[in-house]
Design a protein around this nucleic acid. Sequence first.
DNA 1: CTTGTTTTGAGACACGTGTCTCAAATAGTG
DNA 2: CACTATTTGAGACACGTGTCTCAAAACAAG
Lengths: 403, 403
Amino acid sequence: MLVSQIMLLMATGNGRGARKMTLERSQQSDQDHEFDALDDGFTLNRPTTKDLAKAAGVSRATVDRVLNAREGVKQKTIDKVNKAIQDLGFVRNLSAANLAKNRAYRFIFVLPRSGDLFLTEIIRHIREADMILVDDMATTAVKQLDENDPHAIAAYLGTLDTSVCDGVAIMAPETPQVRDAILRLRERGVKALPFISNQPIDGDWVGIDNHAAGATAATLLGRFVRATSGSILIVSETMQSRDSLERRLGFDRVINAQFPHLTALPSLETYGNADRARRIIAEALRRQSVVAAYILSSEARIPLTVLDEIRQSQNLARPIGLYQGMGAGDGGRALGHIVTISHERTPCTEDALRGGSVDAVITQDPGHLARSAIRKLKAMADQRSTLESQEKIRVEILLPTNL
Amino acid sequence: MLVSQIMLLMATGNGRGARKMTLERSQQSDQDHEFDALDDGFTLNRPTTKDLAKAAGVSRATVDRVLNAREGVKQKTIDKVNKAIQDLGFVRNLSAANLAKNRAYRFIFVLPRSGDLFLTEIIRHIREADMILVDDMATTAVKQLDENDPHAIAAYLGTLDTSVCDGVAIMAPETPQVRDAILRLRERGVKALPFISNQPIDGDWVGIDNHAAGATAATLLGRFVRATSGSILIVSETMQSRDSLERRLGFDRVINAQFPHLTALPSLETYGNADRARRIIAEALRRQSVVAAYILSSEARIPLTVLDEIRQSQNLARPIGLYQGMGAGDGGRALGHIVTISHERTPCTEDALRGGSVDAVITQDPGHLARSAIRKLKAMADQRSTLESQEKIRVEILLPTNL
DNA sequence: CTTGTTTTGAGACACGTGTCTCAAATAGTG
DNA sequence: CACTATTTGAGACACGTGTCTCAAAACAAG
């Protein structure tokens, strides 16, 4: 063992041995416990391209040709080098490589312009991640475009190429124009990644399974409702987006299969208009015996405000506090209490959870979304793969207790 | 604008201008839209220490002295350099610095030896993260020690110093010996980070708020139970650990405050013994009218198996399928159905969720735990800070729909 | 064999920072 | 003023990889 260590030091043959870290961990035992000493030891002094060249019996230039897939190398030589890589367990030193290439990563997030609270959170987290990314030679920029103008979005994407940025995360409606623009962007060598709103393009994307999100909302809602029958109010800003449709689909599937005593009403669309929302929600409440409400769009402010107004006007105000009380038995709750579930963690939904006007919030972590997109874009730029388990965006459930 | 770009190129004055990336993004507009052109442009060509030296009117050697906090520099000079750092927005190129220092990070996870499924998951994720960490010049090792032998753990920690590793994540019982060993480890310059099981040491740690986890379990359980009265079975492997105590505390607080019609029974301890578990659980079920069960330790296999056995023997088997049906109205469920909640995502609890023998699982993401610990140790080694929002471990809720 | 082509090697220089050494400049003291 | 102590500068070399150039070697075809 001692011998092998000495050989290792010789092999690296550099003039700065004093600064090298040693392999041996502890010498409390004078005997040569070969495996014991290695059982949690580390493999440092990683082999370099120089070592590789020596092991493969070729020059460093050839090693470089193989490593960076340059042409003009005989298959036999390629094999020799690859074998040496295997044998030595060579791993390219990314720091050195990036330094040599003077590599920097420039990413753009293309987002809607709407004043959505959830979007604000996402942008906040993109900027936060950006602060840290400086260390990785990466920068991000946010470009907000009118989400109702696919042409403008496609046009903007058309202006991008590798001289401008290395990757783009795109949150945009799924229209043919946008789809084509993305495909052409990729042809130009710019990495493109659908972000939050899915695109009908095969391959990677960052976001949650909205079907599962809707199904989860339904499971919670169904189990929280204590009434033995009644209707569920379903409110959305618009049902035009794929996200809303998928959530509704997942929701209905669970309600129908597991909670047949509840009736999911047709979706009410607010179009972002408070007056309209007030009118259609009030009418639905008058016509049906509503025991629950599901707000499926990411912007919950208007519907929540309207529901609160109605509650107060009917003097059915709920107990205020961290937790919702059961009252005596649960008799007091069966009537008047509308179990409410909404989406996305925002200051608004957090307050509603704490105040008790919302019972649960289904959400995706905006920070995770931002960082995952950046990690994926970076990996795509480097032709690397990412940790699947790290990038999976979870359908999270928020209660007042786990905010 | 054109002028400033030229000046920038001149300032960098290197002989490889061709390989540099350009600042301007797009020239579709011929006019000088100064701000428009910069609104999502990137700041590349970061200033180097050479630029810093020039700007501060000192030599690179002095810049280095200031950057690395070496002594023997006049305050006035330090100020000059710091001002230049501010003015230029200098950020040290970590790749280059680590390369120059030939820096590598060696981290050790000290974990219990028990055959816990959750622990297995954590180790799996540590190894997984380790594969990726090669790129960051970091390696991890796992050391498993008998969790019931604090002396041995303290002794092992005593053998570690900076020649062996740079940081240790420690999951160990909170005893004075371990506590002291951690403090002494830190004195020796090794970063130490309490992992999952909290230590009564101020400062950073990685794990969830177990009080909140217990409270969340209680909220879900209370709202899922449809019976108007009854008892809650509480099962743990042992109540010796702080985690179990805190969960129980949070659980009781919510049950007492919000669901007074339910009675939380005294904790049953299995001590990891199936026979004992079978006996004490059966007895509790006989004596009380049990409507719910809360399994608060991370190892849920034994209690879940026992509960299943009992259910089957009483022919109270629940409908099998992805979702639990309501039956007719909900009359069929009030009797016989024991709402069950357990902790930690493991193959066992996942199956139980899918099969319907567990209604919800409260968990912390093992992959996140592992990666967060590594990120924190790395940041500690570099005297850097981490993104708080990224490192916060969430109390997650798993239902069959959001696995 | 020669000729031409393909493949390889040797070496230089670059990336930005860290760490030395030694000389030079400056400040502080009597 | 001279003398010493402190502070600064100039420069070299290192880290591991990428990218060149030009010559040498190996190979194929005639």
